[in-house]
Write a protein that binds this DNA or RNA. Sequence first.
DNA 1: ACGAGGATGCTCT
DNA 2: GAGCATCCTCGTG
Length: 208
Amino acid sequence: MESLRLSQDFFARDTITVARELLGKLIIRRIGRNELSARIVETEAYLADDPACHAYSSMQKLRKGIAPSGRSAVLFGEPGCAYVYLNYGMYWLFNVVTERSGTPGAVLIRAVEPVMGVTTMQRSRPHIVKPHELTNGPGKLALALGIGPEFNGRPLYEASNKELFFACDGFKISSNMMVTSPRIGITKAKDEHWRYYIRENPFVSTIK
DNA sequence: ACGAGGATGCTCT
DNA sequence: GAGCATCCTCGTG
C-alpha cells in the first residue's frame, strides 16, 4: 500500500491525541538512495502545563512577558517540526512538536519496529545482536535511523523535506491493543499516564 | 531476565 | 552545582 506523508494538520491538535494516533504510523528516513522505514510502537506526550516538559519553565516566564528562548523555543513554534535534544550528555532524542503555534507540546518517539532498511540500521548499531534491541528505546532508534541535531526545528510536513517525515500506510490498531502507562525515566508528574504503546509488541522499550 | 553503576554535556537555579 | 524524557556493561539468578 502507498504510504502518505502526515500533514501539518495532524500535529496541530492536542498532544495526547497526537501521541495516541502516532502509534502504528511510519517514520520514513532517506539517506541518499537508501530508504529506511519503521513503525511507531511507543510514544509519550509532553504538555504545556506539565513539569516534565522542557517548555515548563519557559511557560512560567511567558506569564511575566519573557519570550521563550533556547532549547525549548522550538516547542512553541510550528506543529509538525522536529524537536531533537541531547539527553544525559550522550543521546539524541527525537520528538515532534504538537498544538497550534504559540502553545508548546511535543510527542517523544520512544520505540519503533523496523520495516525497511534493517541492515542499514544494524550498521549504525554494530554491537547489537538481538533484533528487538535495535530500536527499543528513544536513544536507540535515533542512532538506528540516523536522527541527530541537524533535524532540530525542521518541518517534517513539507514535501520538500525528503530526508525525514511521518507517513500513514493504513495500518490500524484496535483500541484494546493500545496500553496507557506512566512515562519512563522522569521524576516530575510521574503519576500522569501519558505513555502509549502497542500491547505485546517486542520492540516496546519496557513493559510497565 | 533484571538491577546497579558509570559515562557525559547541556540547562536551569 | 544539581539534575537530567538513556544506554551499556557486568554482576547475579
